[in-house]
Amino acid sequence: MTAVRQRILVIDDEPQIHRFLGPALDAAGYEPLRADSGQEGLRGVALWSPDAVVLDLGLPDMDGKTVLEKARAFYDGPILILSARDREVEKIEALDRGANDYVEKPFGVGELLARLRAALRQSGKSPAPRGPIRAGDVEIDLEMRRVTRAGAFVKLSPREYEVLTRLALGHGKVLTHKDLLTAVWGPAHADDTQYLRVFIGQLRQKLEADPSAPTMLVTEPGVGYRFVGDDP
């Protein structure tokens, strides 16, 4: 019996995006759906209830952030932003309005598919994972509140552990500075980004093979951080 494929709605007015992204999604096991404008995209979200949406910010009939806001009124699935806009404020605003992630144009299909998989995992209805989360030789045991690297116990302060696990449980999603600061230190510290940089630096020293070129605790410049772990 053929498995039901997850449906991915791509809302973009560039035909070439659909020409290469459609077959790439199909080859990866998804069912691609297409919309060429904001209005078409909103109708598609309502009609098809896709498993995830890939949304361009530069649409001919309305700004993609408006589409995002309208879609979020009735759709709670993952929405990934595609954008040629590289201004930090655009990324932050899209995330604050409910986007799960963003990918800058031009982009690699491999990166987009990886971020799509992460967003779909994170949106799953199953409870947060209770077993270990792994990234290379680092293991985070959520049950025991214990972190090891190459099998050796890593001593973390309570705040370091909280920052690390918040990121790890994001399953690859970008967490903004404000998200992390508010969650770990409280609303009064929402703008204390230097606080966060210090803790991220300490975690990288303890956990990264090369703290100056991190591969697990990755910076999204001007926006926040993401945790890059092993695929489950």
Rank of each mutant, 00 (worst) to 15 (best):
G44H: 11
A128L: 15
P23V: 13
R149G: 09
D96S: 12
P129A: 12
N100C: 06
A119D: 05
R134Y: 03
L203D: 00
E88H: 02
L9Y: 09
D231P: 08
Y195M: 14
V147Y: 00
A99P: 08
A46T: 11
R97A: 06
G201D: 01
K105I: 13
L95R: 02
G108P: 05
R72L: 10
R226Q: 07
K155C: 07
I133Q: 00
P132Q: 07
R97D: 04
Q16E: 14
H171T: 08
D191T: 15
E111I: 14
M62T: 09
R145S: 09
S37Y: 13
V54M: 15
R85L: 14
E104V: 14
R134H: 02
W185N: 04
D63V: 07
L167N: 00
E208F: 04
A114N: 13
R87F: 10
S157A: 14
G124I: 02
L25D: 04
T219K: 08
P127M: 08
R5S: 15
T165N: 01
G77M: 01
V67Y: 00
G124P: 03
A188E: 15
R7I: 09
A119K: 02
H189G: 03
P158K: 14
V45S: 05
L21S: 07
L112V: 13
A27I: 11
L82A: 06
L217F: 07
R166I: 07
V174I: 15
A94F: 05
L68C: 06
L164V: 05
G64I: 10
F107E: 05
T182H: 09
Q122S: 10
E111L: 15
G201Q: 02
L33A: 12
P232V: 05
L95S: 03
D179Q: 03
G172C: 06
R117G: 03
V174L: 11
G170F: 09
A152R: 11
A84G: 15
A99Y: 08
G98W: 06
P50R: 01
A183P: 08
I200V: 15
G77L: 02
R149E: 09
V223R: 04
L57I: 12
F199G: 01
V198Y: 06
G38R: 09
A188L: 13
